[in-house]
Amino acid sequence: MSVDAVLDIAAAVFLIAGAVLCLAAGVALVRFPDLFSRMHAAAKPQVLGLLLVLIGCALRLRSGVDITTLVLVGVFQLATAPVAAHMVGRAAYPDEQTRSDLLLTDELAGHLDRITQHRQDDPTPS
C-alpha cells in the first residue's frame, strides 16, 4: 500500500468522523431542552467536527497554500465559537431562559439586579 493510499484512507476517516460530530451537534441543538445544553452542543462538538473535517481536507489536498488556509479557518473557529457561546449565555441569563435547577454554581446571581437595572435605564429600544 502506498503512502498516498494510506493518507487518503486517513483523510476519509477524519472527514467521516467530523461529519458525524457536526451532525450530532445539529441534532443536539434541536433536541436539548435548555439554553446551556444547546450552547454546549453548538460550541464543542461542532468545533471538534470542523477541525476533524479540516484535518481530513489537509490530508487530501497536501498543498502548502491550501493547508495554510485550513489552519487559519481552524484558528478563527477556535477563537470565536467559545466567545460567541459565552456572550449568548450572558445575554440570555437575565431573561430567565435558563434552568437554574441544573446549575451547580450560579456566578451571575449576584449581578442580576445590576444587569436588570442597566437594561431598564438603557434608552435604546430592544
Rank of each mutant, 00 (worst) to 15 (best):
D8I: 01
A43C: 14
I55F: 04
F36G: 04
S126T: 15
M1Q: 08
R90W: 00
R31M: 15
Y93M: 02
L70G: 00
V71R: 07
A84V: 09
A42W: 13
A109R: 13
M87E: 09
V53Q: 04
C22W: 00
R119W: 08
L51C: 13
S37M: 10
D8L: 14
V47E: 05
L70I: 01
L61S: 10
D8Q: 15
A92S: 13
P123D: 11
Q97M: 10
F36N: 06
V65R: 06
A5L: 08
F14Y: 12
A109D: 12
G26M: 06
D4T: 10
A11F: 06
V13P: 09
G64E: 09
V3G: 01
A109K: 13
A19P: 00
D121C: 15
S100A: 09
H86G: 03
A84L: 09
G49S: 10
V3N: 10
D121Q: 15
D121R: 15
L72V: 06
D106T: 05
D8M: 14
S126M: 12
L59F: 15
D34T: 01
K44L: 15
L29M: 15
L21E: 03
H40N: 13
L103P: 06
L70S: 02
P45S: 08
V27W: 08
G56K: 05
R99E: 14
R31Q: 11
R90N: 03
I115G: 01
F36P: 04
L50F: 13
R60C: 01
V88R: 06
A28H: 05
R38P: 11
A24Y: 10
H86R: 06
C22M: 12
M87G: 01
Q117E: 15
I16D: 00
R31V: 12
S100K: 14
T124R: 15
F32T: 12
L59W: 04
P94K: 08
L70M: 13
D101F: 07
L61F: 15
L102N: 08
V65G: 04
G18K: 09
L104R: 11
R114Y: 03
G74K: 03
A17G: 08
L59T: 03
R119E: 09
Y93R: 01
A25H: 03
L103S: 01
A10K: 03
D122H: 00
V65A: 11
R38D: 10
V88P: 00
L61N: 05
T68H: 06
I16H: 00
M87R: 15
A42I: 03
D4G: 14
L50I: 12
P33L: 07
K44A: 13
A58H: 03
V83N: 07
L29C: 12
L108I: 02
G26L: 00
P82E: 09
H111I: 08
H118I: 01
E96D: 07
Q117M: 14
D121A: 15
A28K: 04
Q117A: 15
V30N: 14
A58I: 06
H40V: 12
V75Y: 07
L29F: 04
I9C: 02
V65N: 05
D95E: 08
F14E: 06
L102T: 11
F36A: 06
M1S: 02
L29S: 05
L54K: 05
A25Y: 02
A11W: 02
A17P: 09
V75M: 14
A19M: 11
G49D: 07
A109I: 09
P94E: 04
I115H: 04
A11G: 05
T68M: 11
G18Q: 11
L72C: 05
K44R: 14
